[in-house]
């Protein structure tokens, strides 16, 4: 009896040590990942509050001797030409991203719903055609799209960007939302239709409210994608007053390559909207991924 108790106790002690080994390994790994992730961002922030002179020193000042918000003031000052440009780029990005987001949701929701609920000839073919868009790099479409946009007179307009962004946001949006709709019991709509709703009313009154998290996730995804897009904006737009942030910033600092504090401040401000948006709504996003993409 005592030997059994002893072996089992020893077994337990042994096991606990093992688990602790894994746990400690995990913690050390997480610390490493935290440093890898956070240090570059921290360095961006620290640099952005240095003066141009303080940034150009070796060895670097780990913390600026004289922290200054001058770079931010310059970027946000509507009186100054740098600030005027930056604010205009910011506004352009916001406008293009918001338009893309609204259109993505309007187009993706019915399509995802149809792919989830209906069986019509060619359904699978069409679904995978839509998904395949994800496979192709922007560059493949660049030349013909450029020519196309020129033909329909959209070069140097934000419309050309919205239309293009729509297509690379749509596939994932449709896929995510379809997974969401797959998980909403079809009986709910059937009940609604028997209760007197048309198919469309059942969709609007019952299904739409239930898929709100999926729609929010889709919206975040489209917004972030559009906000960060570079290559089309770089190619389609040439007029300074129309540039979006990623391209604008690049134009900006290719002229004065040594203003790293200004560049870091601009990078930071460009990141703020999407990071805040994502952090506030991230649970919807993770949930959409779980329900839409993973759980089946």
């Amino acid at each position: 009896m005592s030997t059994i108790a002893e072996t089992s106790r020893r077994g337990q002690a042994h096991r606990r040590m093992r688990i602790d080994g894994w746990r400690w390994g995990g913690r050390i790994f997480l610390v490493f990942m935290l440093l890898y992730t956070a240090l570059p961002m921290a360095w961006m922030l620290i640099t952005s509050i240095k003066s141009g002179f303080a940034a150009m020193q070796f060895p670097p000042q780990w913390w600026p001797d004289q922290p200054t918000l001058a770079s931010y003031q310059k970027l946000l000052d509507p009186q100054n030409s740098v600030g005027q440009d930056f604010l205009r780029f910011f506004w352009n990005s916001l406008y293009v991203s918001a338009a893309t987001t609204v259109l993505s949701v309007i187009v993706a929701v019915p399509a995802a719903y149809a792919f989830s609920r209906f069986t019509f000839p060619g359904r699978n073919f069409l679904f995978f055609t839509v998904l395949l868009r994800n496979m192709f790099p922007a560059v493949i479409f660049l030349v013909p799209l450029f020519i196309l946009m020129r033909a329909i007179g959209l070069v140097n307009t934000h419309g050309s960007l919205v239309l293009t962004y729509l297509t690379f946001g749509l596939p994932l949006a449709i896929w995510l939302l379809k997974g969401f709709y797959d998980n909403i019991p079809v009986q709910l709509e059937q009940a609604a239709r028997i209760d007197g709703a048309t198919r469309f009313q059942a969709f609007i009154l019952i299904v739409m409210p239930l898929s709100t998290p999926g729609i929010i996730a889709t919206a975040i995804y489209s917004f972030i994608g559009a906000w960060n897009e570079y290559i089309y904006a770089y190619t389609f737009l040439s007029k300074n007053e129309q540039l979006t942030l990623p391209v604008g910033i690049q134009r900006f600092f290719s002229e004065n390559t040594t203003d790293f504090p200004g560049l870091m401040a601009a990078s930071f401000m460009m990141s703020v909207p999407v990071v805040v948006l994502f952090l506030v709504l991230q649970r919807y996003f993770v949930r959409a991924l779980t329900e839409g993409a993973v759980k089946h």
């Binding site: 992730t37 961002m41 360095w43 994502f278 952090l279």
Partner: peptide, 30 residues
């Protein structure tokens, strides 16, 4: 921690490129 680890994915690749270009800088890189 999870939120912090996700941030790099959200920020634009353009910003990331500049941040790392500065980190890798041959004279003043950290």
């Amino acid at each position: 921690l999870r939120a912090i680890l996700i941030i790099p994915w959200v920020i634009s690749a353009v910003a990331a490129s500049y941040i790392w270009k500065w980190i890798y800088h041959s004279d003043f890189g950290i």
